[in-house]
């Protein structure tokens, strides 16, 4: 059930681009592009998201000093119907493309597949990651921002952000993929789309637990376990579930959440950040940079996704969730 990579595919470069509100993020200094226009000078939000994706991918290629012709695969997804921002961005990138949807867990599922393609020898260089744009996603899942609907305190703020990583064959001076756990779909019968953290926490718990069991590891074997966008409430729930299994406080402190930390303690963003771009931007900028500076030697990244559609919750369905994990290490 756990994928153990034999050839240690490496994360050779990463980049993140964000919108203007994300300039208020605690991770701001790690982001490569901070735009002052959330539509990136395009006419619509969806076109802006496409530009967000292509800009970030271009930045990844610039960092690695390669061109799109050098890239074998583009693996990516977003939260919009039929994933048109990603599909249209792939049209510009012009490389072999697999669109992937695991909601906000796409930031990790795309990199897992990139790692497998690399291990198979099918890909020398692949770009993998995910993105989200606030206005487009709010309209897709909740209300158009023009509507000005109130949000409860458990709601999270969909970020305008994209994060992409360049995955290639093992090289000694770069972080590499050790193992990955693909999530099951778990449903604890949460029905409130304004309480995603609570819905997703059981999926994160299940994936973390299965990964540690199969790898015969403890949380303290890692420098950090970082979930994707559980937010402040979801993070507390995961810790509470792990504490019930007898995991002690000093180990629980190693668990962090990109969404909970993203906007710091700013109450305007309710329970924290969310969106496929939230975990992707933090993982492929902040986390990779901490490997390069030597602060991290081994981390577990666990991106969570809520697999609902607007129609499914209007029809009274509960919110099924998943979580994909990848173990990254560096010599």
């Amino acid at each position: 059930m756990v994928i153990v990579f034999q050839t240690k595919p490496a994360l050779l470069a990463g980049a993140a681009a964000v919108g203007p509100l994300e300039a208020r993020s605690v991770f701001r200094s790690y982001f490569d592009i901070v735009a002052d226009d959330e539509r990136f000078q395009e006419k619509t939000n969806e076109q802006g998201q496409r530009r967000l994706i292509t800009n970030t991918c271009q930045h990844v290629m610039d960092k690695a000093k390669i061109k799109n012709l050098d890239v074998d695969y583009f693996l990516s997804g977003d939260l919009i119907n039929q994933m048109t921002p990603t599909n249209f961005a792939a049209r510009e990138l012009a490389v072999s493309f697999i669109g992937m949807f695991s909601a906000c867990a796409t930031s990790i599922s795309s990199v897992i597949v990139a790692g497998l393609l690399t291990e198979l020898g099918a890909s020398k260089l692949a770009i993998a990651g995910a993105s989200s744009q606030h206005n487009a996603t709010e309209r897709q899942f909740r209300y158009p921002v023009d509507y000005g609907a109130q949000k409860p305190a458990t709601a999270q703020w969909t970020v305008t952000a994209a994060g992409y990583a360049l995955v290639g064959q093992y090289q000694p001076d770069f972080p590499y993929m050790v193992a990955a756990t693909v999530g099951k779909v778990i449903d604890y019968h949460e029905t409130d789309p304004f309480h995603m953290g609570g819905a997703m926490a059981p999926a994160a718990y299940d994936t973390i637990k299965r990964h540690l069991q199969h790898r015969k590891q403890k949380i303290s074997d890692y420098d950090m376990v970082m979930t994707g966008d559980l937010g402040k409430i979801g993070l507390k729930l995961v810790k509470a579930m792990l504490a019930e299994d007898g995991i002690k406080n000093d180990e629980l402190q190693l668990i962090r959440d990109a969404g909970a930390e993203f906007y710091g303690d700013d109450q305007a963003f309710q329970a924290g950040a969310s969106g496929a771009g939230c975990s992707a931007a933090v993982y492929y900028s902040y986390v990779l940079s901490q490997f390069m500076t030597g602060r991290f030697k081994r981390v577990l990244l666990v991106a969570t996704g809520a697999l609902l559609s607007p129609l499914s919750y209007q029809q009274g369905e509960t919110i099924p969730c998943t979580a994909h994990a990848i173990e990254i290490a560096m010599n």
């Binding site: 919108g19 509100l21 959330e38 206005n135 709010e138 921002v145 023009d146 703020w157 305007a268």
Partner: peptide
């Protein structure tokens, strides 16, 4: 209002 303004993801 729709003629003059363009929607933004503004925080509360």
């Amino acid at each position: 209002a729709a003629l003059i303004f363009h929607s933004k993801g503004k925080v509360n």
